[in-house]
Computed example of a mutant assay.
Amino acid sequence: MRKWIGFLIVLIIAVIIGYNYIYQDHRDIERETAEFTVLSSEISELFADNSITAEQKFLNKTIEVSGLISDINTNTITIDDKVFCQFSEQIETALDKNDNVKIKGRVIGYDDLLEQVKLDQCIITNQK
């Protein structure tokens, strides 16, 4: 009987630990401090020169990127055709193409085909 109770306690603890590991809290990029502040041309050049080293440095890190808007849609902004920024919610701003912008987001990778650094969970930190 004691073996079953011990086994049951160990099983319950394992389930609780597993649940907490799988369902971790999501990061709040808006409240995080950017680890790096770079120009879009700088980060794009780093990824183009050596994507492995750049990914080790920037991947899953919060960064702040600045440059000129080359494309803007309801949920995305492209900066200088080099950095693709995806927003969690619809963008509600009066920004247009060729406006200066500073965006904070999480680096999720580099698209070799389009030669763009990809960010998600982005927020606009400075407009014009």
Rank of each mutant, 00 (worst) to 15 (best):
D120N: 15
V10P: 05
N75P: 03
Y19N: 06
I108N: 10
E64G: 01
A94W: 04
A54L: 04
E42C: 00
I124T: 07
E30S: 11
D120M: 02
N75T: 12
I13Q: 08
R2I: 11
L39Y: 00
L113S: 14
L59P: 06
F58H: 01
N98P: 00
K97H: 11
L59F: 09
D25I: 08
D25Y: 05
L59N: 08
S66H: 10
L11D: 05
I12L: 14
C122W: 01
L113D: 14
I12H: 06
Y23G: 10
I52K: 11
A48P: 01
T76C: 10
L68T: 07
T37L: 05
R2H: 13
N73V: 09
G6E: 15
W4I: 15
C85W: 04
L114F: 13
D99R: 03
K128C: 04
T33S: 11
Q116M: 15
C122Y: 05
T125V: 14
I77E: 08
I103L: 04
D96L: 14
Q127E: 12
V83L: 07
K128D: 10
V38P: 00
I79G: 00
C85D: 04
K118Q: 13
Q86R: 12
C122L: 08
C85Q: 03
E42T: 01
K82D: 00
N75V: 12
L114Y: 13
V117L: 11
I17F: 14
E45A: 12
I72P: 03
Q24M: 11
I91R: 07
I77G: 06
M1C: 10
S70L: 03
D99K: 06
L113I: 14
K104T: 01
I17G: 02
L95I: 09
V117Q: 02
C122R: 03
D71Q: 13
L114A: 15
I29Y: 00
L39I: 00
D81C: 09
K118A: 10
V10C: 14
N75H: 13
D71N: 12
V107F: 07
Q24Y: 05
Q56H: 09
S66T: 06
E35F: 04
W4V: 15
Y23N: 15
R31W: 03
N75A: 09
N60D: 14
T37Y: 02
G6K: 12
G67H: 03
I22P: 07
S40T: 00
Q56I: 02
V15M: 05
T125E: 04
F47P: 06
I52W: 08
I13L: 15
G67R: 01
I29E: 02
M1I: 03
A48T: 08
D81P: 01
G6L: 15
I63M: 03
E30G: 05
